[in-house]
Simulated assay, not measured.
Amino acid sequence: MLTEILKYLGLYLLACLKSIFPPLLGPAAGLNPLEIILITIAGLMTSVFIFTFLGEKIKKQVIPFFVKNPKRFSKKSRRMVTIWRRYGIIGVCFLTPLILSPPGGALLVAAVGAPRKQVFLYMLLFGIFWSVIWTFSVDWLMDIGLLRFKG
């Protein structure tokens, strides 16, 4: 019983950091596709919820602690601004599970002041989209024999 709880909790926590982990590791843990998709979406949305609401506090209190000269732009911050200007809220939410991490995407949209309702809606929609694509892609790769898990 405890091992089952730890298995689900571990995948959930990994999903909070990067949405690709549950689809990759879920089959090895013996989870079915629906469980993997639900864990992936739950982890993504937890990160989005936390970092969207804490984004302003993080921007004001945590970032100045680590960034010595907040007036200067780094390569990473310039890249984030470029992504935001080029793709907007829908593009950032689309790219968050794919390229960015859930905390990174949520902090980016919080930093630019995107409306929370839109952020939650688009993150949920694209989280569902990417988790289904990844889960069934891994499942397909296992079916054709390119991926194997010993269990």
Rank of each mutant, 00 (worst) to 15 (best):
Y8K: 05
G145R: 09
W140F: 15
S77P: 08
G104M: 06
M80D: 12
F129W: 04
K117A: 07
A111H: 08
W134E: 14
G30F: 12
V132W: 12
R86Q: 14
F120K: 07
A110E: 05
R148Y: 03
W130R: 05
C16T: 12
I144M: 12
V138M: 10
L34W: 15
K71D: 05
P22I: 11
P33V: 08
R116H: 12
L9D: 03
S137P: 10
K68V: 00
I63T: 06
L121D: 00
R86Y: 06
M1A: 02
V112F: 13
W84Y: 15
F21M: 12
G43C: 04
L146Q: 10
L25F: 14
K71S: 09
F94C: 04
P102N: 06
M80N: 10
I90V: 10
N32V: 14
D143I: 02
L54P: 06
G127L: 02
L44Q: 14
C93D: 06
L125R: 08
F73E: 15
Y12P: 01
K117W: 08
S74M: 09
P23G: 10
K57A: 13
G104D: 00
R78P: 00
I63P: 01
F51P: 03
W84N: 14
P103C: 02
L100H: 10
P64C: 00
R148G: 08
M45Q: 13
L100N: 05
R72F: 05
I128T: 07
M142G: 07
G88Q: 06
G151E: 07
G91T: 05
I37K: 04
L44V: 15
M80C: 01
M80Y: 14
G151M: 10
P103N: 03
L124A: 08
S137N: 11
V67F: 00
M80I: 11
I144F: 09
I37H: 04
P102S: 02
I90L: 09
I89M: 14
P27Y: 03
T3V: 05
C93N: 08
I39S: 01
S131R: 09
M45V: 13
K7R: 15
P27D: 13
G55V: 07
I50D: 05
S137K: 11
A106K: 01
E4R: 06
T82N: 15
T52G: 11
F51S: 06
V138R: 11
I39T: 13
G55L: 06
M1C: 01
F65V: 01
G105Q: 04
F66Y: 01
G43K: 03
L24H: 10
